[in-house]
């Protein structure tokens, strides 16, 4: 017996028949839909590597049962950039060396996008540090992550001001 759900995934509607109610959003993305950008670092909401946006907000996809998300809008790292042009957060992570091994990076970037959308941290280093603390980086790229988020946040604010 399958359970049908609908998701808007990276802007496109998807009708999905879940073969198992236990499937988390993370495992749905990774093992069934081929979207392996979000990573499984702990599978228990303790590392942030699986961060995606659901209905515009960053969440840990490893703790969300997919079946419960029927109708939701999901944005993953694969849907962030348009074509070859990088999203400002992605570009900033490269420019400021905001990663080393790159495993936690999709989660860091989606979390940063969420943080900037929340609009509370701005370019305040301490608020960015706190706001990004749900994403562990074992390589220790935190200094670069801070610079990247600060830079991207500033640029995105400017862009909004200009618009």
């Amino acid at each position: 017996m399958t359970i049908p759900i609908r998701l808007t995934l990276n802007g496109k509607p998807h009708a999905i028949d879940l073969d198992d109610p236990r499937i988390t959003l993370l495992d749905l993305l990774r093992e069934r839909l081929g979207l392996t950008g979000a990573k499984k670092g702990c599978d228990r909401g303790q590392c942030g590597a699986c961060t995606v946006l659901v209905d515009g907000k960053r969440i840990n996809s490893c703790l969300q049962l997919a079946v419960s998300l029927d109708g939701a809008e999901v944005l993953t790292i694969e849907g962030l950039s348009e074509g070859d042009a990088l999203h400002p957060v992605q570009a900033a992570f490269i420019a400021h060396d905001g990663f080393q091994c790159g495993f936690c990076t999709p989660g860091q970037i989606m979390s940063a996008v969420g943080l900037i959308r929340e609009g509370k941290a701005g370019t305040d280093p301490e608020r960015i540090r706190e706001g990004m603390s749900g994403n562990l980086c074992r390589c220790g790229a935190y200094a670069g992550i801070l610079e990247a988020v600060k830079d991207a946040s500033g640029r995105m604010e400017q862009r909004e001001d200009a618009a």
């Binding site: 790292i77 992605q90 490269i94 999709p106």
Partner: peptide
Amino acid sequence: TRRDGPLKVKGQARF
């Protein structure tokens, strides 16, 4: 900057 950077920030580096 890292040559593998674009793949990693797009979630396309295959672990």
